[in-house]
Design a protein around this nucleic acid. Structure first.
Lengths: 367, 367
DNA sequence: CTGAAAGCGCTAACAA
DNA sequence: TTGTTAGCGCTTTCAG
């Protein structure tokens, strides 16, 4: 036997108890706090653990009478079954790992409202389906670490919020057969399942809307190194081309999802004397910072500069001005992601899904 | 023996394999995907599992040579130890449950930016200390359910974000000796450990600041049924009293943390012809909605009405106007909460902690 | 209908 | 230094 298991029930005086005059110091109480287990319930009920197990699992093999008796006893004792032991025995598990990449470089970490909203949405979807959610963070430069919870058997699958730059890491995980679903863009030669908004359509819709408002020199703000942003940028370019406008490289602001860098970039642009009449920002935070910075620099929004955001996070409609933005279907996304993961776990090869996005027009673009 | 364990290594033809012409349908592949285990590594290394266990745990009992050999073998096989089994054996566990109350009534759920930021902060603090974070949601009317993860042995302790109305539920949990730390106010006869901002000081500082700006009729917006809000309200009353002002019941807007209800309340107030020159809102979202609603109704902010928020969530400084607000130390809070829980687990009786808050003055109150 | 016993994947006495 | 073995808390086959 390994560690000193708590004494079962023989009332034989344990050697320790003979120490008598032990200091009255508070019992260490151990983290354990004498957790009740099935054997205790069994003893109290005068049956075997097997019977308790069956009763608690509602097996019809055990008579209704004892089943009820045991159920009530367990309840009155406040007993609940040890899930880890059960899982170990059963060889399964209902925990899903949700991983948030932490990017030291661009500093978009867990404080970004979109990511957090996504987390909430996933929590809802998983809870509803009876799964537990284990949340962790990994360095965005080393996404393979996302599989840790899976590798250690803690979780049966992984949901990654954002694919970042390392498509290849994700493919490697998929090649290793880690059940994984990624929120992000669908990329060529993708081995894993991704679920994401329609970024091309989003970029297109936002830019078209600005063009329709008469804007001709539209700033694009976002880091095109990220696949999702790159697609929005494609949409932006297409919309410009369709309108017969040419994209001016000076108006491409390759800023990450960071408020300070966005503010600096806009300020630089204005101070450089660039002319522009609209900003298409790749997140609502970036859009909001743009509005504020522009106003502080004496440009009126939307009269002189129209601003469109992305995501439609909760406060976008409460901002001043209420933000025109591309709504990502966050609640639906959580459900889609979880369902995709569940199918993956079922052994299926799940195709990538692209969710429709919707342009929500508000005051930030209405002159 | 219970379920058909995967065949070990005897190459004896299994009875199934004699079925020969079985349908070539894709193998179910099971969710299991033939996970590698310690016995496999042991066999491949030509040693016993005990040795592998010791080697992988860096025991000096095993010779450096074999330790390294086994380590490399394990790495090359991409083996990682099954944490659940290990925990079961060791009788411990490094998972902490973080519970977010879901309030169907006031609708402040996981989408509230403050709660989500808190979640991020806790993720940081827990990760840093080597703990895993299990996130779940419970009905705010039944906070006792928060202990589920603990009761089932999934988690060693519980962190609850927000105490809501049911102080008594929490006391009951503490009485049951569930290790729990709650983000919220310190209440009389509190059996559990709470960590929270200094709500009284926050309410005081915000209101004083408004008074100093010359405001005399200050709206208070928040649901005083929540202990934290009640304390802010006390601060508000004290500040008014100190300034020789009297609180007007008509200016107390008992709205929950919900944007729509806030908007409705402000609108009603204005339409009722109430006179006021400031709003002290109990969250930044409420403050932002107030600004927007007031402006839409033709009141200028801050010229006619000054607005103070609460929390200082990330975008508060990027709003237009940048929000004067009471900053809650979110990052520090995560650390304090986790440390308090860890001490509780250590068997200590941990006193409640109150964290200093700071008034951040920005343009929303500068005329 | 119920109990005895084996074993999920791992660790740690104890023995060699 | 290494292997043997018991057992963490549970489920389930098999025998009564």
């Amino acid at each position: 036997m390994a560690r000193p298991s708590r004494k079962k029930l023989e009332a034989a005086p344990s050697p320790d108890s003979t120490l008598g005059a032990a200091p009255a110091a508070a019992v260490p109480a151990g983290a354990d706090h004498q957790r009740l287990q099935m054997a205790d319930v069994a003893r109290l009920a005068g049956v075997s653990v097997a019977t308790v197990s069956r009763a608690l699992n509602g097996s019809t093999e055990v008579s209704l009478a004892t089943r009820e008796r045991i159920g009530e006893l367990a309840r009155s004792l406040n007993y609940s079954i040890n899930v880890s032991a059960k899982n170990l025995r059963l060889g399964h598990n209902r925990t899903v790992a949700v991983v948030i990449p932490f990017d030291a470089r661009s500093r978009q970490h867990v404080s970004d409202p979109f990511f957090l909203a996504m987390l909430g949405s996933l929590a809802d979807a998983l809870t509803e389906r009876g799964y537990d959610m284990l949340v962790s963070r990994v360095d965005a430069e080393n996404l393979e670490a996302a599989a840790q919870a899976y590798d250690t058997g803690m979780a049966i699958g992984v949901i990654l919020i954002g694919q970042w730059r390392h498509h290849d890491h994700l493919n490697r995980l998929a090649a290793r057969r880690v059940p994984i679903v990624v929120w992000g863009a669908q990329l060529p030669q993708q081995l894993y399942c991704s679920v994401g908004g329609d970024n091309l359509a989003g970029g297109l819709a936002a830019t078209r809307h600005l063009v329709e408002q008469g804007c001709k020199r539209i700033v694009f703000m976002g880091d095109p190194e990220l696949p999702e942003v790159a697609l929005r940028y494609q949409g932006y370019l297409q919309a410009l081309a369709q309108a017969g406008l040419t994209a001016d490289a000076a108006l491409q602001l390759a800023v990450p999802f960071d408020a300070n860098q966005a503010r600096a970039a806009i300020t630089r642009l204005v101070e450089a004397g660039a002319e522009f009449d609209a900003v298409f920002a790749c997140s609502d935070v970036l859009a909001m910072v743009s509005v504020q910075t522009l106003r502080a620099l004496g440009h009126s929004v939307p009269a002189q500069v129209a601003v469109v955001g992305y995501d439609d996070v909760e406060w976008a409609s409460h901002a001043d001005p209420p933000l025109t933005t591309v709504r990502q279907p966050i609640a639906a996304a959580g459900i889609e992601i979880v369902d995709a993961l569940l199918e993956t776990l079922g052994g299926k090869q799940v195709p990538a899904r692209t969710l429709a996005v919707e342009l929500i027009v508000r005051a930030s673009t209405r002159a």
